[in-house]
Design a binder for these strands. Structure first.
Lengths: 229, 229
DNA sequence: ACCTGAACACCGTTCAAGT
DNA sequence: ACCTGAACACCGTTCAAGT
């Protein structure tokens, strides 16, 4: 198994020569370790034992890196069984995408800031989504719009699902009242009756249940649209 | 009309003394002028003829400023006629909120990064939204989840409605092919048939129409849910 | 071809000091 | 009470120079 073409001098592995995919992998590790805000070109370079400027030989800029990173994150996405009814397929797609976004720290933020899909994995993901909608019988325009809708829903959902954690933690640490539920109920009852009435579900939402709710609404809405089409 | 209590010395207006609402107003102007990325504490201070450190006397940090700014942006929100059927009210609410977000440059980004609503205007806005859903007959949990859904939809929609412009402009200026439609159609036809089929609607979406589509889907979905409740 | 040194033009935030 | 000077600890990016 000793296939190592590059001359294996004594310290061959000390300078493994940078490489796009190596950079992306390191960025993903760094993301999981320190989160999106600390994912900087300089920290990434440090992790790779290199100077920040070196990265720019392999990557146009940070935007480019984020785009590559977003694609890498989507690499583990598995596609649903195409023989299932479209609603089931959409559910699988939604669940799978959500789990992909939950698999790495701040992944939703990476996806949100990485621009339109251009890498193979994200293109594949959107292809499957649109294909499912076309298979279901939507016309081109509706399929396109519905695809945006579903994919935006999942991204947005995970986005605030994961930054509620941050906010909660922040509030808990710096505010004396760690319960923002009590904060809610302390609002002027005359001005915000509905807010107060709903406080229980606004503050401690069951994420899985709430996600499921949104998917159901979207599916019901799409089905109605399909029937009337 | 000469009511000016503070002693009107020769250069009285040279140092009008900073003020929270004055800072927020200046931040809003700056946002419209230079956009979210250039809305920095230092630039804001410069605009106010003051040093950056001074701002921290009136505002906890940038996060706090963004929160105040978000509330200011929502100040112009008008509430729909409560006697309308709930679907019409929801439409009005959606349209109005979208227009509020389109009224200032990058307003959706400000809202997205400003955390949960805490100012009076945003609280009022969410109160109205939840009230509408409760009036419609949803139970507490469904009303709460549906409120998130609708408000997230609008924010997300405007978010990429407005950054498509940026991306398009960027592509148009630096790419030789200003049409990403041609880019889409140049994809491997065997791998991405649906993407290519839908290219027309993916690249040049009619924003108003697409927004309307999403609202319709949500309303239909919610109606179905309400009937089965 | 690939990496570094060194700089450029910025950030948000703090805090002792001034008035 | 309110503002400034000056610093701290960072950013992304460029580019001549090294190997």
């Amino acid at each position: 198994m000793k296939i190592r073409p590059s001359r294996p001098g004594r310290k061959a592995r000390v300078k493994p020569r940078l490489d796009r995919s190596q950079i992306v992998q390191a960025a993903l590790d760094l993301l999981d370790d320190v989160g999106f805000d600390a994912l900087t070109m300089r920290n990434l370079a440090k992790k790779l034992g290199v100077k920040a400027a070196s990265l720019y030989w392999h990557v146009h800029n940070k935007q480019d890196l984020l785009s590559l990173l977003a694609d890498e994150i989507c690499a583990s996405m598995r596609e649903p069984d195409r023989t299932l009814p479209w609603r089931r397929q959409l559910e699988e797609l939604g669940n799978e995408y959500r789990h992909v976004l939950l698999a790495h720290r701040d992944a939703a933020r990476v996806l949100a800031e990485s621009g339109a899909p251009s890498g193979p994995h994200r293109l594949r993901l959107t292809e499957i989504l649109f294909r499912t909608l076309l298979d279901a019988g939507f016309n081109h325009k509706d399929a396109a719009y519905a695809g945006f809708l579903v994919s935006d829903y999942v991204t947005m959902f995970v986005l605030d699902e994961t930054q509620d954690v941050n906010t909660d933690a922040a509030d808990a640490s710096k505010d004396q009242s760690s319960d923002l539920q009590t904060w809610f109920k302390a609002l002027p009852a005359h001005e915000y009756p509905s807010l107060i009435a709903l406080a229980d579900y606004l503050t401690a939402p069951n994420a899985d249940e709430r996600f499921r709710f949104g998917i159901e609404i979207l599916e019901n809405g799409l089905e109605t649209r399909l029937e009337r089409q």
